[in-house]
Design a protein around this nucleic acid. Structure first.
Lengths: 222, 222
DNA sequence: CACATTAGTGAACAGCTGTACACAAGCGTG
DNA sequence: CACGCTTGTGTACAGCTGTTCACTAATGTG
């Protein structure tokens, strides 16, 4: 990555101290955090020096962009939101007919989880992390995701018999189940296709079970 | 049992350096870890010195009982198993008739979660923690819990139409949903009765939805 | 061009960290 | 009693930690 500017003006780079595109260090620091998390470290155990070392930057640079570790975590949550939105957009574009809706959505989810492993690892960690702000941020992203899902389902008119509240609850449960499958997914090796397929099948069955419940919800309500 | 001369020799305890019942320091260390976790710290960020300080013990004592932090975590997972088993036993004893089964189980779960807050906090953290061994341990406890639940349901003959595999899947989903509600529960203040009741109601609805799905599962299967 | 602002650097400091080592007190067993 | 075993203690050390400070180079704005 980022090799587009190494050809034209490196002859004056005697010092090469700080000529980089703006915000690059910031991204390097956030990327370094994700890299370390991707290597199995927990975000809460990362230190500033360790982070800057991984990013190839001097420790003091950290404070130019973040007040402390929680601050960096919050900005990571914001980027996580972008990842989720990209995933939603792709799902909305790809789902063609209703009968394969669950399978295709789960597939898209799994492929995004594999492509953005570190991001989702960070999300799973943050749910029970030590910063309340990060926790709330992630929870809020999940709520947003669930409400968007509810909107889509309403638009597709597949669940007309459900009240808004019941639909929201159903989507909430769906998102939680998928999020939990996510932690399964992050627990197996990246290339263990067999295990990943098992998780895929289980997740699909979970969602089918939930939607069967939703289809019969009013009649089954006590 | 008591010989005749071991009763009058406690007056030489001038130093009182290390006369404590065996294993007390071990428990103090594990308790200190739980205390810190209960205060909002993440287990992965705890240090040995910090822990021994909290326990009121000298740092070197740590190594008498644990090889490292992961070792301590694993032993905490074992104790977590005991907590879960106690909870299951109480649930089995208290559930009288089938129609209140979900409500009563959720109530028991919530009361145990409040009573053993730090333990469940540790469990929620460990699910996405940095030690694979701890992660697997917790996952294994959850699987055991789910299979016990499946046994109970089979014994109560409430779900005779489900195959063993489908019942296991249903119970797995139930346990996951409850575990996720747990993280909600741990996120609110201990005495915020209103929020806790909201979580209680939502969890009950989740489980009802799942069981409605299970009741119609075969017919809804594609 | 002059200027304030921004983003980078290196040196420094006090304090904390994990771990090793040698020692002491009490225990159970012979 | 003497012995080894376990548990707890104090000291020590090298290395890492977060954070402050003063300095410098490049950038954008007038």
């Amino acid at each position: 990555m980022s090799s587009e500017f190494n050809s034209n003006r490196y002859e004056q780079s005697m010092a090469e101290k700080q000529r980089r595109k703006p915000g690059e260090t910031r991204e390097k620091l956030m990327g370094a955090a994700l890299t370390l998390v991707g290597k199995g470290r927990h975000f809460a155990s990362l230190g500033i020096r360790e982070l800057t070392r991984q990013a190839g930057v001097v420790p003091t640079s950290f404070y130019r962009h973040f007040r402390n570790m929680d601050d960096l975590g919050l900005q990571l949550v914001d980027e996580l939101g972008l990842v989720l939105r990209r995933m939603m957009r792709e799902a909305r574009g790809h789902v063609l007919q209703a009968d394969k809706l669950i399978e295709e959505s789960v597939d898209i989810f799994i492929s995004h989880a594999r492509a953005n492993r570190s991001f989702f690892l960070f999300m799973a960690q943050g749910l029970a992390g030590e910063s309340r702000a990060i926790q709330d941020g992630i929870r809020s992203e999940m709520r947003f995701f669930a409400s968007e899902l509810a909107n889509d389902l309403r638009r597709l008119r597949l669940v007309d018999h459900l009240s808004d509240g019941d639909l929201d609850m159903t989507c909430d449960l769906v998102v939680r189940s998928v999020a939990f499958s996510l932690t399964d997914l992050l627990g197996v090796a990246e290339d263990d296709d067999y295990q990943i397929d098992q998780i895929r099948k289980r997740t699909i069955r979970f969602l089918q079970l939930i939607f069967v419940g939703a289809a019969h919800w009013e009649s089954g309500k006590s």
